[in-house]
Amino acid sequence: MAITTNQGYARLPQGDVGLLASEVAQRLLHSTALARLAYVAADGSPRVFPMLFHWTGDEVVFATFGGARKIRALRARPAVAVTIDTVGPPPEVLLIRGEAEVHEVDGVLPEYAAAQHRYYGEQAAAATIAEIDQPGLRMARIGLRPRWVGMIDFQTRFPGGTTADEFAQVGREGD
C-alpha cells in the first residue's frame, strides 16, 4: 500500500525503504532530475557522477557505455549512494544506498531507452537511440536495489531527523 501523505511517511524512520512509496519519492523517481551516483573510484578516491536514470519499481537503473571506468570501480566496490533532489522551495531530497550490480549487454539497454524518452521526449530519444544503436555497441546496466532510503522535504522531514522547530534553531546560539 502506498503512503501518499506527508503525515503517513513522516512516521517512518530514515533508512526505511517504505519511504520509496511516498508521494515525494515517487515524484522524484519519475522526474527528469538527474540522479547523482556516488561511488569509490579505482584509485580509492570518491566520485559523484550526475546521470540519467530509470526507476523500474524495484531498482534505480543507470546505463553507461562499455569500457567506462566506473564499471570496473563499481564491480570492485559496489557500495553506492544516490541522491535525487530539487532546489525547491522547499527543496525535496531522496537519498538511496545499496550495492550496485553491473551487467554488460550488447546493444541499447532498454532502461537507457526508457530514460531517454522520459528526459528528452519521443523525437529526441528516437534520434539519440538511432545514432548509438550500431553493430558492436556494448552498454553496462548499473542496477541499484535500495537497501536504505532517506527523505528530506523541509516540511515534515528535516536533516538529522529534527523537527521543524529544532531545525529552525540549527546554527543559532543556544540559551
Rank of each mutant, 00 (worst) to 15 (best):
R36H: 06
R11L: 08
I129E: 01
G160D: 01
E92F: 08
T86L: 12
R97T: 10
I142K: 00
A168R: 08
P90C: 01
A100H: 02
G67Q: 08
T4I: 14
Q116F: 01
A81Y: 02
D175H: 15
F62N: 08
R147M: 15
G150I: 08
Q155K: 12
V61S: 07
Y112V: 01
G15L: 01
G174V: 11
H117G: 07
A79V: 13
D165F: 12
V93D: 08
V40L: 04
P78N: 02
I152L: 09
V24Y: 01
L29H: 07
L37Q: 02
G18L: 07
P46I: 13
I142W: 00
G88K: 03
S22Q: 03
F158T: 07
R157D: 04
D85A: 07
P78A: 07
P89H: 06
D133T: 00
D85M: 12
A113E: 13
A115V: 09
A73P: 06
K70R: 13
A79Q: 12
V24F: 05
I3G: 10
R172E: 02
V24P: 00
W55K: 06
S22K: 03
G67H: 09
D175A: 15
L12M: 09
F65H: 14
G143T: 14
V17G: 11
M151L: 15
V80G: 13
A81E: 01
A21M: 08
G171D: 04
L74S: 03
E122H: 00
L20R: 04
A164E: 14
R75K: 13
E23C: 00
E166G: 11
T4Y: 09
R27W: 00
F53K: 04
M139W: 04
L20G: 03
P91G: 12
D85L: 05
A81Q: 06
L52S: 11
G136A: 04
G150M: 05
V149G: 13
D165G: 15
R11N: 00
A127Q: 12
M1D: 08
R118A: 05
V149D: 05
L52M: 13
A33S: 13
V17K: 14
R172K: 15
A113D: 14
R36I: 12
A68C: 12
H103W: 08
R77M: 14
R47F: 10
V80E: 08
A114H: 11
P46E: 03
F49K: 13
P159Y: 09
W148N: 14
G15K: 06
T162F: 11
P135A: 12
V48R: 04
R157G: 02
T4Q: 07
E166P: 08
L74W: 04
E111M: 06
L28A: 09
D16L: 05
L94Q: 01
R27V: 13
Q169W: 03
V170S: 09
S45G: 11
I71A: 04
L94R: 00
L29N: 02
A100C: 11
G150T: 02
L34M: 14
R72H: 12
R36N: 11
A33Q: 14
L29K: 05
D133L: 12
T32C: 14
A41E: 05
A127T: 11
